[in-house]
Simulated assay, not measured.
Amino acid sequence: MRVAVVSESFLPTVNGVTTSVRQVLDHLQRGGHEAIVIVPSTGAPTSYAGFPVFGVPTIAYRQFPVGLPSPQVQRLIADFAPDVIHAASPFLLGAQAIAAGGRLGIPSVAIFQTDVAGYARRNHLGAATGFAWRVVRWIHEGADLTLVPSSASMADLEKAGITGLARWGRGVDLVTYHPRNRATPATKALREQIAPRGETVVGYVGRIAPEKQVERLAALRGVGGICIAIVGDGPSVPYVRKQLAGMPVSWLGKLSGPDLATAYGSFDMFLHTGTEETFGQTIQEAQATGIPVIAPRAGGPIDLVDHGRNGFLYEPGNDSQLRASVQALAADGALMSRMGEAGRRAVLPRDWESLCDELLGHYAHAVAGRAVPARRSVIANRR
């Protein structure tokens, strides 16, 4: 299969969209498929997994490169003549790729990864919320298929009147993130640094940005016998540092690969704070490591955390529930162990190989909905 992957985010930016796209490209390479990658140009590599990477003009927004509309996008797609377009978290760049596919007769699969409703609520957009959803409908109605990662996202999109929806979650690296990491020398050394008196370690991993609401960790102020470890970076670091001033917090910065796996291994529990996650990849990574998760009962975490079995869900904004959940786990080591083991079991079927095989099935479904001879004829005429 020939796939044009168009992503609003790619290396060197590391986030959930980039991780997902890289896993898809690695899977396509292992399966002998052909692909091109179209991304914002700032710092992007020229190739990945043996596939050419093409950068388009970019502007910066909140430390993120944003790809701008460019006639180069349609030319690249027409010249490559893919069987399908994969639009990852489509916005300006992805919308142009989907529209180009429509003109060229090429089916497109859009991956929904932005909680528009949550963003609108947090920023008190009021009447602008309706406009935001009209933009989302305009983008996704052009796609042959929109894949959504959670039941909450599915409900939001159905409510907005968007059709052609199917569920597709995210895989997790079950080898890199593993309970055995908790016993490595590197993990033991990090724990001694974070919790020198044997405190219970409450960990967070993710971007430090307004939508992540990391400042909610302040609800743990005064809880005895715990310390906090924060992995990540972003524009809200100064604000969050101020809100957590005087608390036992270790700021570990942005980590990846084995260093990130070691950080997860040093945690006793994982605390997710944001209410706008369409999925929650870091939750799966924590579960794969064998640690219980505490998260708000909102968005993606609802599907990932089985309340009372592999962690706790607290009502969004309810700091007393958040605090009580942490205290309950910190006071019961056996409960932490049972919940951690249950979390690991829950993610075992979600390896990236299985999820990417499922994605190929979605590609085939989108392709089957188009007349291939007619599509090839349109592409030939456009050249």
Rank of each mutant, 00 (worst) to 15 (best):
Arg376Gly: 00
Gly118Met: 10
Phe279Gly: 11
Pro292Ser: 14
Ser89Trp: 01
Ser7Phe: 14
Pro65Asn: 07
Ala334Met: 02
Ser9Gly: 00
Arg180Leu: 12
Ala97Trp: 08
Val73Asn: 11
Leu174Tyr: 09
Pro69Phe: 07
Gly300Thr: 08
Gln287His: 05
Ala95Asn: 07
Pro90Trp: 08
Ser70Ile: 14
Thr13Gln: 15
Gly333Leu: 07
Gly274Lys: 11
Gly361His: 00
Ile59Tyr: 04
Val66Tyr: 01
Val172Asp: 09
Lys242Ser: 14
Gly340Gln: 08
Ile194Gly: 06
Gln63Gly: 05
Val175Asp: 14
Phe80Pro: 03
Ala368Trp: 04
Ala364Pro: 02
Trp168Pro: 04
Leu360Lys: 05
Val17Pro: 02
Gln287Ile: 04
Arg323Asn: 10
Thr46Val: 09
Cys356Phe: 01
Ala288His: 13
Thr176Asn: 12
Thr282Met: 15
Gly343Phe: 10
Ala60Lys: 12
Ser9Tyr: 10
Ala35Cys: 08
Ala229Glu: 05
Val293Asn: 01
Lys188Gln: 15
Gly253Phe: 09
Ser377Val: 02
Gly206Thr: 06
Phe91Ile: 02
Val249Glu: 06
Ala261His: 07
Gly246Ile: 04
Ala189Thr: 14
Arg309Gln: 13
Val347Trp: 09
His178Trp: 06
Ser377Arg: 13
Pro349Val: 01
Glu8Asp: 11
His365Arg: 15
Thr282Asp: 14
Val21Lys: 00
Val109Lys: 02
Thr273Tyr: 10
Ile291Trp: 04
Ala152Glu: 10
Ala245Ile: 04
Gly206Glu: 08
Gly94Leu: 08
Val116Gln: 01
